[in-house]
Amino acid sequence: MLVYRGFSQIAPSATVLTVGNFDGVHLGHRALLARLTAAAKSFGLPAAVLTFEPHPREFFVPESAPSRLSTLREKLELLADDGVNMVHVCHFNARFAALSAEEFIERVLVDALRVRHLIVGDDFRFGAGRAGDFATLRNAGARLGFQVESMESITLDGERASSSAVRNALQSGRLEHAARLLGRPYSIDGRVMHGDQIGRQLGFHTANIRIKHERPPLQGVFAVEVKGLPGGPHRGAANLGYRPSAQQVVRPLLEVHLLDFCADIYGAHLNVRFLHKLRDEMKFPDYGALKAQIASDVAAVKQYFQL
């Protein structure tokens, strides 16, 4: 998959395009991407996505912007998995936000991305003040030579599949429901780094994983599967949070105790899939109490996996 930053480089060919944030790449996104790739095949053109960095809400209201479900790297990996050929990452800044709907269509969609066929969600709005909508696109397409189609939202048991619905499920510990909305278990990527080896002192070797999420949408202790190591996926118990019972950290840290793997994995890039929440993070009076709770958590994870 080709990835372009900004619009200084014009798309190498005409495109079948969709536009959106695609945070989490949930069932609704994936249905849209399936239609995108099918249309691209019928036109004999690349399936292209225009997405934004940062998320527009992080630009407009940073103090109240929601937690991201996926980092840019994770999002790009998920888009590639769904068959996208080309992604244009737009730097969302004041200059871009000020583009009128017509300027966005002519300068971005037509001149830079060479759109031949555009597919958008039924709630898609764009341009300064969110003035542009589907009717705006359809009228411009008739004038400028591209086709436009919209796609209705995907619902699951009456609930709209959306990034907000996934985020709410994760925050409330309903990981199984989040997985249904996503079409896969929620996961976070990160690289294994050196830690303070407290887990080893307590008798539980842990992989300390540096993650890019500044405010992950979930915290606590979980049953997980880990991909990225030989012989995987491997099962484990994970803590995601700020370690209130050890040397507390400023940024959230993901620590994973693997049940069936023991090797030097420093530097490895791992994908951790969150399958089931055991409990919230809590502060213990001493390391003895912490060790006992970890042993209980590991036992609960083994029971979850029926080991």
Rank of each mutant, 00 (worst) to 15 (best):
E149L: 02
S164A: 14
F96Y: 14
L118H: 08
L307A: 11
K212M: 12
D111N: 14
D133W: 09
I198W: 12
L2C: 01
N168P: 00
P216S: 05
A140K: 10
F126H: 11
Y266T: 01
R279E: 06
F284C: 01
I294H: 09
I209F: 05
A47V: 11
S67P: 15
V110D: 08
T18V: 04
A292C: 00
G231E: 05
L27I: 04
A140L: 06
V87G: 06
L76K: 05
D196A: 07
V3E: 07
A295Y: 01
E152Y: 01
A207V: 04
K302F: 00
A97G: 08
I211L: 09
G236W: 05
R200W: 03
N93K: 01
V272E: 09
R174S: 12
T206I: 02
T136L: 07
D189L: 14
I209Y: 07
A169C: 13
D122V: 06
V226C: 03
L275K: 10
K212E: 15
V148Y: 08
V221W: 07
R243Q: 13
I209L: 05
T18M: 07
A292G: 00
A14E: 15
I294G: 02
S164G: 07
A140F: 12
D123Q: 06
V49F: 11
R5P: 00
Y266A: 02
Q303S: 14
I209G: 06
D81H: 13
V3N: 09
I10A: 15
G132T: 12
G190Q: 05
M151N: 00
A14P: 03
Y186E: 04
G199T: 03
E281A: 05
V250L: 13
F104M: 02
F274R: 08
A39C: 12
R30K: 15
K302Y: 03
R143K: 14
D280E: 15
R180V: 08
